[in-house]
């Protein structure tokens, strides 16, 4: 028993030393992976709202509003589509009248993707649940399958799907690739494509 506690003592002291040593060293375990910033901070602490402004303290903290909504790993940490489908929230489709409901269009557009990533499926149904046709057609997209140039580079620049995805709708993160790249490719098609492509 005694021996064990001495051992633990020695271990913890050397632990402290190694911590001190590693703090000085350039070879830390995680050099680039920084801890996640805290999410859904109250307005007075979010670095954007002025804590000296009385109105700031009247605003609702996001955590309180998101209580009970379906959680996600990205953006607001809320899965907005699932929160609507499970009736946790029912956003109005008209400013002053709660009765009108959106007309949902069921049309998936499959976009073949170069390389190994699964193909992209653009679901009209989820978008027409929230948006008007005129929000995309024709300002962002010509309504014709395959008529629009799309690429990840453009999306990352805030064009194409990136007009919304990266600003208000779910952003591009490792956990969201699959929401867009949702149609697995036929076997061997990756190889075939790159062979015929070069």
């Amino acid at each position: 028993m005694y021996k064990l506690s001495v051992l633990i003592l020695i271990a913890s002291i050397s632990g402290v030393f190694s911590l001190v040593a590693s703090a000085d060293s350039s070879n830390t375990f995680n050099r680039m992976l920084k801890p996640q910033a805290p999410a859904n901070l109250p307005p007075a602490e979010d670095g954007l709202h002025d804590p000296d402004n009385p109105g700031t303290h009247m605003l609702q903290p996001p955590k309180e509003a998101f209580e009970g909504l379906v959680k996600a790993k990205w953006g607001n940490k809320v899965d907005w589509i699932k929160s609507i489908k499970t009736k946790k929230i029912s956003p109005r489709h008209n400013a002053s009248d709660a009765a009108p409901k959106p007309i949902i269009m069921n049309l998936n557009i499959v976009r073949q993707v170069k390389g190994s990533m699964p193909d992209v499926v653009f679901p009209h149904d989820r978008h027409t649940l929230l948006l008007a046709c005129s929000n995309c057609h024709t300002g962002i997209f010509i309504p014709q399958k395959g008529a629009n140039q799309m690429s990840m580079a453009a999306i990352m620049l805030g064009e194409s799907c990136g007009k919304c995805h990266g600003a208000v709708a779910f952003p591009i993160t490792t956990s969201t690739c699959k929401l867009c790249h949702s149609k697995p490719k036929a076997k061997n098609s990756v190889l075939k494509r790159s062979v015929t492509g070069s």
């Binding site: 680039m32 920084k34 901070l41 979010d46 709202h49 953006g75 390389g115 580079a153 990352m156 790159s194």
Partner: peptide, 29 residues
């Protein structure tokens, strides 16, 4: 085609690295 893919992936990778920069307090998305 391969060149384009590499360019695209390059953009993604560079952006993923900028994500790893230390993060300060963050306003709501």
């Amino acid at each position: 085609v391969i060149k384009q893919n590499i360019l695209g992936l390059g953009v993604i990778l560079i952006s993923l690295f900028t994500m790893m920069a230390p993060m300060k307090a963050q306003a709501e998305y």
